[in-house]
C-alpha cells in the first residue's frame, strides 16, 4: 500500500501531530515502505487462530477497591507547563 501526502496529513491529524505539506511529503515514502513491508502478513496461515494479546495469556489481576496512593497533587503540578490555583491551564476553549 502506498500513501500520498494528503493521506499522511490525515493520519497526522488523527495522531495530533502538526505537519505541513513538505513534512508530509518527507514521511510519505517511509510510511509507504512500512505498509508494503507489513503486507507480508497477508500470507500467514492464521485461519482459526486466536489473537494473542499477552505473552503468558494472563488475565487482568484485580485488587480491593481501596485507596492506596497518597495525594501528590503539588509534586505533580510542580512539573506542569502552566498551572494556577491547582488547575492546569490551557488556551481558552469556550469563547
Amino acid at each position: 500500500m502506498s500513501v500520498d501526502t494528503s493521506e499522511v496529513r490525515r493520519i497526522a491529524h488523527l495522531s495530533r501531530l502538526a505537519m505541513n505539506d513538505d513534512q508530509a511529503r518527507d514521511f510519505a515514502g517511509g510510511l509507504s515502505d512500512i505498509f508494503a513491508f507489513v503486507e507480508q502478513l497477508d500470507g500467514a496461515a492464521i485461519e482459526g487462530v486466536e489473537p494473542m494479546a499477552h505473552p503468558l495469556d494472563a488475565e487482568q489481576r484485580l485488587r480491593p477497591d481501596a485507596v492506596t496512593e497518597p495525594d501528590r497533587r503539588e509534586a505533580y503540578q510542580a512539573i506542569a507547563p502552566a498551572v494556577e490555583g491547582g488547575l492546569y491551564l490551557v488556551p481558552r476553549v469556550i469563547e
Binding site: L41, A44, P51
Partner: peptide, 13 residues
Amino acid sequence: YYLKAQKVRRIIA
C-alpha cells in the same frame, strides 16, 4: 492489520 498481527504473534509463540 492489528488483529492479523496478533494472530501471527500466536503462531510465532
